[in-house]
Design a protein around this nucleic acid. Structure first.
Length: 258
DNA sequence: CGTGGCTCCTGGCGGC
DNA sequence: TGCCGCCAGGAGCCAC
């Protein structure tokens, strides 16, 4: 789930549940998810503070504290946030306590990461993230792919080029754009880039509006047909291939390879 | 540069 | 039922 739309939803959830309350305790249950910081240090910066704001960039969530620091969260494949009072989730890797409840960073597979930064912009730069997929404008979108070689899918998935898209939403974007995932970037004309850009934005916005739940997605979305044997809208069977090592779904008659 | 393979980690599912 | 292999929405690293 944790592609851009999920993280946007986690941000809203975080804001709704966890702002403006004193942090009374913090436990790191699995220190191996920390990025260049110790449990002790992270505790030192968070205890007694309050979260005053948060923002998302790509697949990262930055939670701002009133001492100027920002808790950095990346959700890997299976990470999510759960604010609870009684019923704790199963795989808590970090637990933040407030007077009236707990915010759990839950992550079965431990591919998620937790860090701390003074400056999200510096963090973004240091990690060489490309422009955010929801914020980028058309001109930059076309620019970032200039002189790029290789297939369009791996390029769209590369967080250093554009930040926020993952396997599911790249497939969705390419389906909506009528482009085969293996189309070489140099084959795309100005109009293709324009169309791709608008479809990407549409897909991300619609996904956020639908709570990023695959079964709630519009039926003309590939996402609601993402299983072996599923049918495309014209009735043909969905095709499953590997691109860049990732399982890729497409509708061959609509996404012809150039 | 770009690509393919491997790795981290855990759990669910299908097949035998 | 039990076990095994395969797969999963991410991403870094390495060899070619």
């Amino acid at each position: 789930m944790p592609e851009l739309p999920s993280v946007e939803i986690y941000k809203n959830y975080f804001n709704k549940t966890s702002l403006n309350q004193v942090i009374t305790d913090l436990k790191i249950l699995n220190p191996e998810i920390l990025m260049d910081i110790s449990s002790k240090e992270i505790r030192k910066f968070l205890l007694g503070q309050i979260f005053i704001n948060s923002k998302r960039y790509g697949k990262f969530l930055f939670a701002e504290l009133n001492n100027g620091m920002h808790l950095v969260m990346h959700f890997g494949m299976t990470g999510y946030l759960d604010f609870y009072q009684n019923q704790a989730p199963s795989h808590i890797r970090m637990l933040i306590s407030f007077k009236n409840g707990f915010l759990a960073f839950d992550d079965v597979r431990k591919f998620g990461r937790i860090g701390l930064t003074q400056d999200p912009d510096f963090f973004i730069e240091q990690n060489k993230l490309g422009p955010d997929a929801l914020e980028i404008n058309l001109k930059s979108f076309i620019n970032i792919f200039k002189h790029r070689k290789g297939a369009i899918k791996p390029l769209l998935m590369n967080q250093h080029i554009i930040a926020g898209l993952g396997n599911l939403y790249v497939d969705e974007t390419l389906y909506q754009s009528g482009l085969h995932p293996l189309t070489p970037a140099y084959e795309l004309k100005k109009n293709d880039w324009k169309n791709l850009y608008h479809q990407m934005k549409k897909v991300l916005i619609v996904a956020i509006q639908h709570g990023d739940k695959p079964n709630k997605m519009p039926s003309d979305f590939l996402l609601s047909h993402r299983y072996p044997g599923a049918k495309c809208s014209g009735g043909e069977e969905i095709e499953i291939i590997k691109v860049g090592g990732r399982t890729t779904y497409l509708c061959p008659s609509r996404q012809v390879l150039r």
